[in-house]
Every structure is written in C-alpha cells, then in structure tokens.
Design a protein around this nucleic acid. Sequence first.
DNA 1: CATTATAGTGAACGAAAGGTCACCTGTCAA
DNA 2: TTGACAGGTGACCTTTCGTTCACTATAATG
Lengths: 202, 202
Amino acid sequence: MANDTKERILAAALEMFSQNGYAGTNIRELSASLGLVKSGVYKHYESKEAIWNALLDEMIAYYEEHFGSPEHLPSVPDSLEGLIQMTMQMVDFTVHDKRIIMTRKVLTLEQFRDVRARELATKHFLTGLTDMFTQVFLGMMDKGLLRREDPKMLAFAYTAPISALIHLCDREPEKANEAIAQIETFSRHFIKTYGGTDVIPE
Amino acid sequence: MANDTKERILAAALEMFSQNGYAGTNIRELSASLGLVKSGVYKHYESKEAIWNALLDEMIAYYEEHFGSPEHLPSVPDSLEGLIQMTMQMVDFTVHDKRIIMTRKVLTLEQFRDVRARELATKHFLTGLTDMFTQVFLGMMDKGLLRREDPKMLAFAYTAPISALIHLCDREPEKANEAIAQIETFSRHFIKTYGGTDVIPE
DNA sequence: CATTATAGTGAACGAAAGGTCACCTGTCAA
DNA sequence: TTGACAGGTGACCTTTCGTTCACTATAATG
C-alpha cells in the first residue's frame, strides 16, 4: 500500500533526522533502511525537504492531538503524593518512549533552522509543560494541597528543572536512572516547599 | 601571520557551525567569509574535522579558564537584592554575548554526535551552573540570607529555570526581553520563597 | 643576495549528494 | 482480456562536497 510506505518513510526519517540532523541525513541511507533503493522514496515524496515538512506536519499534529486541547489535561491529584506519582509516571514515559525521544532530539537539532521546529520546540520544552501544570496546580490549590501562589510561576519552577533533566537523559542516556531519581528528589523537595498546610485557606 | 588566520578560521567555524551545524557547513562558504579560497584553509587545518576538533579544544579551554576553577566563583552577595543583581548581570551578559550564544548553539547542535560536545553541553547547561550556585547559596546561608536547606537542591531549582529561559533566548531572540523579565520575576519569587527569616525583603 | 619557509591561488579529482527517467511488474477495475 | 496505474528498480545526470596539488608571491633568514 502507498500509505504504508509513506508512513514508513516518515518513521525512518524521524530516526535518521534525530540522530544525524537534517543536513547529516542522506536519502540513500534512509531508503536502504527500508529495503528500498533511493529513487523509490521519490515515488512518495518529491524531495528531501518534502519529507522534512511532512514529518513536521506529523509531529505538530501529534502534539496537538495528545497535548493540544484541555481535555488531555491530567486529572488533578488528590494528594501531594499523587502529584509525585503522576509526575514520575509522565517522566518515565517521556524518557523511555522512543518516538518522543526522537521528536525531542529532532526539535533540538533543527530549532535554529526551521521556524515551525522552533515553535514546536518551545511548546515541547517550555510552554506546553508550564501551561499543563498551571492547570494542575490551580486544581491542587483549590483542594488546599498547594499554597496559594501564582500557579503559573509554580508550574514554571516545577517543570523547568524536570525538563532540564529530561534533556540530560536524551543527551546522556546512561545517566537516565540517576536523572530520574533526581527528578523524584526534586519533586519531593517541591511539595515540601509549596505543599499546603492542613489549615483551610481563607 | 599564520596564527592570525588560524584563529580567524576558528572564529568563522564557530559562526557557521552554530548556525548550520557541522554537517550543514561547507568549507567553501567558510573560506569565503574570510576572503579566502577554500584550498586556503587547508594550509592551516588538514581537514574539516580537524577544524571541528580545534574549535572544541578552544571551547573546552575557554570554559575551564572562565568557569573551571573555584577562583572564578562570583562573590557571595550581601543581600537578597544582591543575588538578583548578580543573577541579572550574568544573564544579561550570557544572553547578549555573541560568542557565548554561538557556543551554546554549537553544543546544542552537536551534543548527540560528539562525546566531548556532549560533556561540555552538560557542564554549560546544567552542572556548571548548579555547582557554581551551590557555592553561592552556601555562602548566603552562612550569612543568614537563605533558609538552610540542601544548597545543591536550591541551586538546581534556581538555575534550571533560568537556563531554560536562556535557551529560549537562543531559540527565539525576539523574545529575549520578555524572557529576561521573566527571569527577574522568577528570581524574586525564589528569594521570597527561600529568603532567610532574619532578613525580610521589602 | 640567494634561499627557504609561509600563506595563498586556481584547477582538478573522486566521492557522494539530491534528483530524474525509462522501464519493469503485479493489482485491479472496466 | 486489457489497460491503467501504483510502487519499485537501476542507470544516469548535475551539483557540491572535502581534499589535493602544482604553482606563485611575499617575507624572513642564512
């Protein structure tokens, strides 16, 4: 089927672009990894750049689909321990899921070259996480689980360090376990600092 | 002089590598930016990879020289406001200094390809900042300016969000002013949270 | 002054890049 | 049965890449 190969090309492109970057990837190798000869891929995409654009389309669509709308917000935890659990679950997933790792890498490598990659990178690495946890923290404040402070600031202070350690995992995968442990330590420090008192807020 | 051109080649390489990456840079353009013809650079470096390695040598040496030894630690501020001032001074420098911007970009682009770039990236983006502010915060705790908590944790919680916003400046320079303002806001939030009890901010 | 290293030129080379094209082959609808 | 077509092949094209080399102008050195 046409669509099958077309999708397989994008998958291979994600793999190669995330490892060698756009400029460092050549069509011959890409095709070979699919058991094709290079002219074969031109039946499906008219150029290397077309592959890149299609891949970006897919990445953007994937992001919108999974993190774009408010309905995909995680449920507000019922306890501080619940926040830790939720966090560690998300971290564990995002650090080990091959596709998401490759997406981050590709965005990292192409952020200075392509406007859309740049925008998606900022969402992935910064604003997306902050926005999401702003909602979560708002909910937790309503439940009296967190001190009432600017939720956006708290979300930023919470997610940015975690994001930094996720980047470390991408860069030095052999440190992943250590980094994950550090994320949990940080997370516990965070709830110790900002966790709500048992007193009902006025 | 030989050394002059040799240095100019490295400067041009930093510029091009930071914009287009190693694979996306070609010797012809690089030489042209120096008013040379491409064979000219081979009088000074035997290959493109040799240029890359020399540039990395230089970046590593620069880092050691400027941030490597304890003698380059910033002096411990005498007040919480002093921490803000110190922070904003460093941020302002690192966000606007062309060479440091290019260094960060190059490390970002090549961190998955070159082991030394990877290690330097981790220092630049994570451990270097954390280590430095661990010392600063230790000193501030001794002065009663900060609550006595794990200084390493505090340093990490302080520098990681700042680092994230510095990356944002590299990625989207038009947002630099906004990002810098956000850093100051975050910094003020931080001292409000962790500031010592005996010194009351404003 | 003669010589010699230095820094740069321009032509050329082979390899590899992205891309095109004529051709083949199996599938499937008319 | 036939014919259009989707999907794949291999040869080939052009351009660009990194690199080499014979050569030259210049400046320092014996």
